[in-house]
Design a protein around this nucleic acid. Sequence first.
DNA 1: CTGAAAGCGCTTACAG
DNA 2: CTGAAAGCGCTTACAG
Lengths: 320, 320
Amino acid sequence: MSLALRDSPLVADATRDRIKEHARTIGYIYNRRAASLRTSRSGIVGVVVHDIMNPFFAEILRSIESELDRSRQTFILSNHYDQLEKQRTFIDTLLQLGADGVIMSPAIGTPAEDIRLAEENGLPAVLIARSVEGADVPVFRGDDAYGIGLATNHLISLGHHRIAMIGGTDQTSTGRDRFQGYVAAMQAAGLEVKPHWRLPGPRTKQGGFESAGQFLALKDKPTAAVCWNDLVAIGLMNGIARAGLVPGVDVSVTGYDDLEEAAIATPALTTVWNGQREVGRRAARVLLDRLNGAAMRASQELIKPELHVRQSTGKPVERN
Amino acid sequence: MSLALRDSPLVADATRDRIKEHARTIGYIYNRRAASLRTSRSGIVGVVVHDIMNPFFAEILRSIESELDRSRQTFILSNHYDQLEKQRTFIDTLLQLGADGVIMSPAIGTPAEDIRLAEENGLPAVLIARSVEGADVPVFRGDDAYGIGLATNHLISLGHHRIAMIGGTDQTSTGRDRFQGYVAAMQAAGLEVKPHWRLPGPRTKQGGFESAGQFLALKDKPTAAVCWNDLVAIGLMNGIARAGLVPGVDVSVTGYDDLEEAAIATPALTTVWNGQREVGRRAARVLLDRLNGAAMRASQELIKPELHVRQSTGKPVERN
DNA sequence: CTGAAAGCGCTTACAG
DNA sequence: CTGAAAGCGCTTACAG
């Protein structure tokens, strides 16, 4: 019977049709737990990121979804909110459910050991957005140092000399790469980087909004801000507007990610396209290939970011 | 052994400790498929909405997540994008996985039959945000007619007489309720409702942004817009700003949902709090109660919305 | 208190 | 080409 339902050529056409018809009339429901128990393939893939509601991840997830859909894999989503414990619980759940693989943006502080443990228990892993030192698995992310350099150089070429960096954290590879890319671009242009021009921390609109006051009160009054991401940039612009200044005129602001929202912000946001679609698509494909027995290459795939210039950046204006 | 691991009182303490210790050293992984096959409880709950990346649902999901977490239920998320076929595939997957229940914001056009089918196959359902005519299951949503009335009356009390309604659709119960609430409030105030003042359709920021031109060109130049939700309102305000007008001064705009983002928009958005947290929390609790054997009441729980007045609404200004 | 047996619903060789 | 049997890893009575 199971052969018939799966259209095996071992079963005669007439028999197959008769069985399928019968299955329909009795409302037969295929029991995937039982099948999975026997075959040790579950058709489930886990996806865990810091926060699925963050539009940056949302765009990645959408492309993972459409890729997995095509291969009829079910996916289980989870947030770890950068809590290692939550991430471990989730991986444990995946192991218990016999998931076929996991795509993860690892929580801050994830040890390579955690990933090795998953792999050893038959749960192949693919990383997105962040790397884990010493983990021997594929990673898909953008070239952050290069990307932030695009934004910084754009501001420099407009004539800005005092440029702040708002948001991000040194605790992730992404955070370190972006900060270093900013510093490198400034130094290459012979510009000074003052430590107090960096306001680490904010990662959300709310965070960007709240840092506006601090930014505007900064010593030496920077004329531009390179932001950690689009959310921080949009929040910061709202905060600047609330303070009576005009973002894009009085202060230049750049984002990062090029979310769908960046183009319709007021003013439209100059930002760095970070290839979310590409990251999701490639990560899903590599995982699916591994599930189908392809050999793994522990590659680091860096997607080349692109600068999208809009109205939030312009020539520097001195404030009083 | 399984008794020992689950801390059954039937097992002696010493034995239990010895077994647990052994389980740890050999890296034992509990097989939930096998357990589920035997007990026909899987510890999985499905959640399906139009789009999990929509912040309105995101806020509901967050509270569902924390509620389910507490009961150690794993949840599987899915988007149906208002495609009935996707929703059916997902419910079928849940049945195959032996999920314990499903929380859903039903896709447009969901027949009561689909929900009955799930229930009959042992998959209890709870609805959020939208009702399904004839479905005999609990529903949790806001009182839309009342809520939109709050926004409309607020504009009327500021002196607006020509008020447009932007976005939404007649294909959902929510859409119909909000439109009727707007019409009722206008009529109760003795104001005329012109059919062309309604621009149905937009549900996103992008949609709101794109409808700005159409809104500003409307015959009789409405002085205010009641928007389908916060996303549409924020998009519309951006579009209005792009056209050189000042939202909150030249045109009053109200949103719906009171997303976290509403308070930091420019200008801060006057909107209707729609109890997302409440909806998610209660829906999850009722489902969990049902799983634990509580009798079901097919209740319609309407959460009372509240008006939050901010800077996007003011006295009417005539445009030329 | 503990151990051995049956059975959940599949799939996979194996025998007819 | 088809049917009957074994086994995946649990849990649940049941016997000791």
